[in-house]
Every structure is written in structure tokens, then in C-alpha cells.
Write a protein that binds this DNA or RNA. Structure first.
Length: 408
RNA sequence: GGAGAGGUGGCCGAGUGGUUGAAGGCGCACGCUUGGAAAGCGUGUAAACGGGAAACCGUUUCGAGGGUUCGAAUCCCUCUCUCUCCGCCA
């Protein structure tokens, strides 16, 4: 979400930048509504000013005029709240602008490869997919999950369930002990405002699981990522500067409808309605966002390095980034059965975009200012399991468990 | 589920119809004091929106919405959230 004043000043520039994000911003429409809105505000304020001065005296001669003004104000208010909500509708749905270092492009074809790490193992046999590896002992059981819940869910059993738990512990321990993140155990159900804060609403409602909670009008949602709760930990607050940066880590299930991805990755555990993810969130002074992004990327990478899984880092193009991001790195792990890299983490700086939506500020030298927020997967557990299983498989279908996991 | 209490500034907390954006305290900032610190003293310290290059000006805001009134933090209604007790339960 932008500052309206800034938006007005740089309309043409912002339109151009939004084009890089594949958004066609209608300047004229915005100008029309905005000027109407401001006109109504001005008229209303003038009347309010008069009313205020009248009500300071107890002179009965003014009562009649004052009464009339009250009515006029209430009429103007109704009109203004309509034009206001039209403006809100427009600006709440505009994505963040890409930072200057972001490559400009329509889609993932313009993404920029930053680095490759690790050696891709040459198997002397044909590498099996995680599905085949899981079927060996029925440790990945889709037959049962279909019966329980439908497609895009999974039942993990025995050693595989334990492996999932070990990976979560390993990642949490690493981020807490090595990188000074504070571990959080958050709610998985949040209200509408929280979803708005990080940008899931209003634009991406169709991908969220809304749950029937009670008979009140308050809407509740299952979190699609711990980013939502961790970032909103600072919502509607003003933080002392010396308490920044704040760094949070949590492992939570994530719930996504995956609307619009029908037919994509239908087999296996790559794309699920429910999956565990270890999530990193940083709350920083806004000018430190880009440094923090590099740091966060390093934290996520370190997991793959410790597990000796080959990966590459990609800088997303303006058209491929998520709604709230100003700059995003994806980490892609090598998946032998697909003979390609697949996304296993996404680390983004959101600048002050989410902070504005949440009302999250800190005390700076020049007064209160919005904080910067960052989020990154550190890492997606399901996909990490796939990468680990497939990269560490033996010909007989057994798996070599890395030493770093053995004590967790 | 039953009963009660309460939502006021970064925090705590006064305030039951008329210059109350709001006493007092804490915190914070600056200054004085000190060899230095603490204490003490003094001054300052809300946000949102609109106008302005800026200084600054204006309006709004005491959980949210509606009502009464010339005038509402204060009265009435609805909603919401939090807390306490009882019941139930992991």
C-alpha cells in the first residue's frame, strides 16, 4: 500500500512501474475519484469549522444554523465515504513496486540466475521420484489421504513422518541458535485484518481457506503461511528503535487452495493444500531492508548447504514477484527425478508496503515511521523432504540420512 | 453456555453534557546539574486525513457504528474485543 500523497505526486512514474508488474493503472479514473473525494473533504471541513466555533458559545441565536450544519455535514459524510471506499478499493489492490535492482520483465523468463551451489550427483541407476521412494514402504500414502481429505493432501508414515519432524527441528534450531531468530508458536487461524496486513486480502481471497467460526460477522482464515502471523506480530504498534531488528521464526502448517493451479503438479507432494513450512520474518528499519534480505537469504541457503543439497538462487523479475514484495530471491533445490531445480524458498523484502497496511511503526530520529518487513521460507518442509529423499537415494530405494539430522 | 467488570495518548491512569487532544504519572527527547553516572530540576513529547516547497494551518479521533442535543470521552441503542467468577472441556 502506498502513501496517497506520494502516489499523487508521481502518478506517471508509478504507472510505469506498475506496468512492470503487469498492472494497468488507470490514472484518469484515479484522478477523478481522488479530486472528488478531496473536494468533499474540504467542504465538510469548512462546515465542521463553522459548527465548532458556533458550539463554543451558548448563544441561542446560533442554534438554528448549527442544527442545519449538522445535517449538511452528515450528507457530505455519506458521499465522502463512498468516494473514499472507491479510492481504497483501487489502492488496496495495487501491488508493491519493484526495487531498482529488480530485473524488469513479464514473467519468470526474465528472472536472473544469481548462483549455483553444490554438486549434482550422477546416479549409476535411474533416480526414483519421491513418490516411488515413498511407495517402497508405503511411507508416503496417497491412497489413504484421498480417503481422508481428497487430493493434494498426504499421509506420511513411520520413518518419513519422523524425517519431517527432524527437518523441522533441525531448521528451527539452526535459525534460533545460529542466526538469532526468536522462535514463535503462533495461532494458525487469523482474522480478516491480519490477512489484509500482509496482502493476502482483498486481492487473493480465492486462494485462502476461510473457516466458519461462529455466528459473528468476524471472518476467520487459516494461515497460508506463517509470514502472515509473524509479520502481524508488530501490527498497530510503535516500536522503540533500539528493539529493531526483530527476527522471528516459526514452523507451521500452511493452508492454500491452490486455486488456478489445476492440473499443475498433481502428482506427489510438490503442491499440497496443507504443508509445513519454517518461516523467517524480520522487522527492520526501512533503509536496512536490502541488507537484511541478503542476510535472510544466507540463513535459508545455509540449510541446504548443511544438508548438502544442490541448489540455485534466482532473482525474480518484476512480473514474477508476489504482491507485497519489492525484491525477491527464490532458492531452487535440485530435484533428480524431474532433472531440474524447483522452488524451495522465497525470500522477499516488502519495504514499508505491509507496514502501512498493518500500521506498524518505529520511533526514528525524524519522528515515527513505518518499519520494513521481510519474509522468507527457511525452508518449505515438504519440498525439502522431496529434495533430500531424491538426492540421497540408493539404488535399492533406501535413503542416506545426513549426519546433521541424526541427533535431532 | 451462565454472571459480572471494563475498553481513554508509546504505556499506566483521571475525567458523567460546554474551549478536554484530554489532569497526573511512567517512558522518551533536549537542556541544567555532575569528574562521570544516578537522582533532582526545567522544557518538550499522539495519530490519521486535507492544504502547503516549507514553516505552519485546518478537520477528525477517548473500542466500532448509530441515536439524543445548539454542543457528547461523558446520556441512549447495537455490535465488537478484553478481563474475572461459575459450568463444561483439551
Amino acid at each position: 500500500m502506498y502513501n496517497l500523497k506520494e502516489l499523487r505526486k508521481n502518478l506517471d512514474d508509478i504507472k510505469k512501474k506498475l506496468q512492470n508488474r503487469n498492472i494497468d493503472f488507470d490514472i484518469n479514473n484515479f484522478k477523478t475519484i481522488d479530486s472528488l473525494n478531496r473536494d468533499l473533504i474540504n467542504k465538510k471541513e469548512k462546515l465542521e469549522q463553522e459548527k465548532k466555533s458556533l458550539s463554543k458559545s451558548k448563544d441561542k441565536a446560533n442554534f438554528e444554523r448549527s442544527k442545519k450544519i449538522t445535517q449538511e455535514i452528515s450528507d457530505l459524510e455519506k458521499k465522502q465515504s463512498i468516494s473514499q471506499s472507491e479510492i481504497d478499493k483501487i489502492i488496496f489492490s495495487l501491488p508493491n513496486l519493484a526495487h531498482d535492482d529488480v530485473p524488469i520483465g513479464r514473467d519468470e523468463k526474465s528472472n536472473k540466475l544469481i548462483k549455483k551451489k553444490g554438486d549434482i550427483k550422477k546416479f549409476t541407476f535411474s533416480a526414483k521420484s519421491h513418490i516411488e521412494l515413498g511407495e517402497r514402504n508405503q511411507n508416503i500414502d496417497f491412497d489413504t489421504s484421498i480417503k481422508l481429505s481428497g487430493s493434494r493432501f498426504v499421509v506420511l508414515k513411520d520413518k518419513f513422518a519422523m524425517l519431517e519432524r527432524a527437518l523441522i527441528n533441525f531448521m528451527l534450531d539452526t535459525h534460533v541458535n545460529e542466526f538469532q531468530y526468536t522462535e514463535i508458536s503462533p495461532p494458525l487461524i487469523v482474522n480478516e485484518d491480519v490477512m489484509f496486513g500482509t496482502g493476502q486480502l482483498p486481492k487473493f481471497e480465492e486462494d485462502q481457506f476461510e473457516i466458519k467460526f461462529d455466528n459473528s460477522d468476524q471472518r476467520k482464515f487459516l494461515i497460508p503461511t506463517a509470514e502472515v502471523v509473524l509479520t502481524n506480530l508488530v501490527r498497530k504498534s510503535i516500536i522503540e528503535k533500539n528493539l529493531l531488528p526483530k527476527r522471528f521464526v516459526a514452523s507451521t502448517p500452511c493452508f492454500r487452495k491452490e486455486a488456478g493451479s489445476y492440473g499443475k503438479d498433481t502428482k506427489g507432494m510438490i503442491r499440497q493444500h496443507q504443508f509445513y513450512k519454517v518461516e523467517l520474518v524480520s522487522i527492520v528499519e526501512p533503509n536496512k531492508c536490502l541488507n537484511e534480505l541478503e542476510r535472510m537469504l544466507g540463513c535459508a541457503e545455509s540449510i541446504l548447504e548443511k544438508l548438502e543439497i544442490p541448489y540455485q538462487v534466482v532473482l525474480l523479475s518484476s512480473g514474477d514477484m508476489g504482491f507485497s514484495a519489492e525484491k525477491t530471491y527464490d532458492i531452487e533445490a535440485w530435484i533428480p527425478s524431474e532433472n531440474k531445480y524447483r522452488e524451495i524458498s522465497s525470500c522477499s523484502s516488502c519495504g514499508s508496503f505491509q507496514a502501512r497496511r498493518m500500521g506498524a511503526k518505529y520511533k526514528s530520529e525524524s519522528g515515527n515511521d513505518f518499519v520494513g518487513t521481510l519474509n522468507g521460507s527457511g525452508l518449505a518442509v515438504g519440498r525439502l523432504m522431496i529434495a533430500l529423499l531424491e538426492n540421497n537415494q540408493n539404488e535399492d530405494g533406501s535413503i542416506n540420512i545426513p549426519n546433521v539430522l541424526k541427533n535431532t
